[in-house]
Design a protein around this nucleic acid. Structure first.
Lengths: 290, 290
DNA sequence: TATGGATCATGCAAAAACGCATGTATGAGC
DNA sequence: GCTCATACATGCGTTTTTGCATGATCCATA
């Protein structure tokens, strides 16, 4: 019965990953080690957990049952780490934050700079991604999100309101001003069906010329003069070569929030970073609104 | 983040045991190993979990928090083992049963003998104790209990009803028959306040001469002629030198049950042992009732 | 039908974990 | 006040675990 729990962890990851090798990569060990862990777990539990196939390790019914329980053990481990982080009153050690790439690039990098200067002992990890990380699974301690919905176990602090508006390259803006009757080419974002409704009253002669699933691409295409794009004020203003154009009057958009798991909201490092955010957004509120 | 769960298990056991050495004994390793595990856990969790005192390792608030979570991980591990045992359809491998010492000694040993002959592959552990083992914690797969209450997560099968009656040594029985007016000396069991109520109507001249907290002692004292004792029929009849005496007419007593955790009730080995019990108690019902 | 890319199994050397022995400190009991 | 028992810290040799390299098998694909 000794040295068992880590074997169960291996079982969980092999079930998830589907093969020894893939699980080994996640666990950061050689796959032969995973193989031995699985064998040990089967010995200890007295049940065959996997069918060894050439395509990989396929869990038996018993293996799936074991993985279900191991998953709950993992959830409990994560909850433990969260709880311990949450009572950590040191301004030192690891801290992970996440935000969208654009928000980081344009604004948060300055908050981060300031924060690290003030708290040099903190080992900060920034997960700059457009994926929505799972704060419940402790993938990050704090997230800056453009969203109205903090969710169930999360607690939030509103940082600022913001507007979106229409932007175009300076060239294109000049051409459109010179030829008011000319058709407006919009650069769309995923799932757009038509140009922004609020723009159609005054600028009905419009179409979506092309569509992206990535905001960086939208920005690039707009800079290249391919069309008019709707984007947050802070993004349009900060992007070289773009000017605001009148097609879409500024629209209220989702507020920007700082979110944390309830367990983590009072951790010293989380609190300090949140305070830094609040101060920055207070000083720079003008950048986000019309 | 590798090799962590076993460290958390060490934390749990040190919190429980209060010292490295005691925890090491439970874990079956040297205490220096436990010491290193604790250090590793503290490193990984980034929190001090114990105060090192000369009197032992005293958990900090963080350590208690960690132990609470580790406790749930352990509960989940136990649930896993139960679930896997429950779906085990082999009549081989480990099986643990428990019952009171007397029941084992007098009757169950014969069931066990028969069972092991029929299923030689089963590695049977018999926990013959008067403690009530926790079947929810998987301390045993099956229990034979004298009790009406199967409990929440347990499922039971009634094996037989039974009676208690009064027994004495043959000598004392003869003397009492010869001198009907003589005072009856009862041998009491823990918490008895007076001789059995049902006996007082006809044998009011009675007292409790001495009292034991252990049924084996009661049996010995009765054999030695120290007095009359109330005991289950099966026990009085099976004890050499004792005869039933009329002071206490046979009384209905708690039924005898075979109990298992719900998860385990259909495991092949559990089912087979339960069947053996049912058959034995059917064949020997007369031994338990008046 | 041959080939490249997966997968898992196994033998062997390197690395890490482990247990033992020793030393120190504290508190209980005579 | 002394001894004894208990608890933790630490250094060192040994055992165990781990990673790597090789070999075998299967599948997809050209």
């Amino acid at each position: 019965m000794s040295d068992d729990w880590d074997n169960l962890r291996a079982v969980l990851h092999v079930v998830r990953a589907g093969s020894l090798g893939a699980a080994a990569q996640v666990l950061g060990v050689n796959y032969t080690t995973v193989s031995r862990r699985i064998a040990a777990a089967e010995r200890s539990l007295g049940a065959r957990l996997f069918d060894r196939r050439q395509s990989g390790y396929v869990p038996t019914a018993a293996g799936q049952e074991a993985a279900r329980h191991a998953e709950r053990m993992e959830a409990e481990e994560i909850a433990m780490r969260r709880a311990l982080s949450g009572r950590d009153d040191r301004l030192a050690g690891p801290l992970t934050i996440t935000a969208s790439e654009l928000l980081i690039a344009i604004h948060l990098c300055r908050v981060i700079d300031r924060f690290l200067t003030d708290h040099p002992q903190v080992e900060l990890t920034v997960r700059s991604t457009n994926e929505v990380l799972d704060l419940t699974n402790h993938e990050a301690d704090l997230a800056v999100r453009i969203s109205a919905d903090p969710g169930d176990t999360l607690v939030g602090r509103r940082l600022t309101g913001q507007h979106t508006a229409s932007f175009a390259s300076a060239d294109l803006a000049a051409r459109m001003a010179a030829e008011p009757a000319r058709r407006i080419d919009w650069i769309g974002f995923t799932y757009w069906k038509s140009p922004p409704v609020a723009s159609l009253k005054r600028y009905g002669n419009a179409r979506i010329r092309l569509q992206f699933d990535d905001m960086n691409a939208v920005v690039g295409a707009t800079q290249a003069g391919l069309g008019v794009a709707r984007m947050p004020m802070f993004l349009g203003r900060a992007t070289p070569g773009l000017v605001q154009v009148p097609m879409l009057p500024p629209q209220r958009y989702h507020d920007i929030w700082a979110l944390s798991h309830r367990d983590l909201k009072d951790a010293a490092k989380v609190r300090a970073f949140r305070d830094a955010l609040v101060q920055y957004f207070k000083e720079n509120a003008a950048a986000f609104s019309a």
